[in-house]
């Protein structure tokens, strides 16, 4: 029993360390990326996995808390992509255009046509 707990603790510590590294990388991505959409890309992915893995690590080290921590993990996993998606759409519609090296933009058409419809009404 004791060895099992020790093993779980080491696995948990590994996850905590991994999570903190990803959280750091996510924040670095937010700081370094050239435009809003790329910041969202880096921020969402890295911080989601970072937070999930850190919380899971704590859950392994403290098995009594595991159920609640899994609720937190699920909530982060659902809510984080949703909020980044809402922010991306909102900023595109408010007129912030992404940074392009070579322009590939299928969305512009859709937003413009929607705007046209709104104005004609």
């Amino acid at each position: 029993m004791d060895t099992l707990n020790n093993i779980l603790e080491y696995i948990g510590l590994f996850f905590v360390l991994l999570g903190s590294i990803f959280l750091f990388l996510g924040a670095l991505g937010i700081y370094r990326m050239p435009d809003l959409y790329n910041r969202l890309q880096a921020g969402t992915k890295a911080s989601t996995l970072g937070a999930m893995s850190m919380v899971l690590g704590i859950g392994l080290m403290q098995p009594g808390w595991l159920i609640k921590l899994i609720v937190i993990i699920l909530f982060i996993g659902i809510s984080n992509p949703l909020s980044s998606h809402a922010l991306a759409r909102a900023s595109y519609k408010s007129g912030i255009r992404p940074f392009f090296k070579k322009k590939v933009d299928d969305y512009e058409e859709e937003v413009e046509s929607e705007k046209g419809k709104m104005e004609s009404v």
Partner: peptide, 24 residues
Amino acid sequence: LVKANFDVAKRVINPKLPINPGIV
């Protein structure tokens, strides 16, 4: 998800920021 994170990590750490973004 794990692949995505290593991908992001690679891009963020690289001093040249190898990105070529677009909307498809």
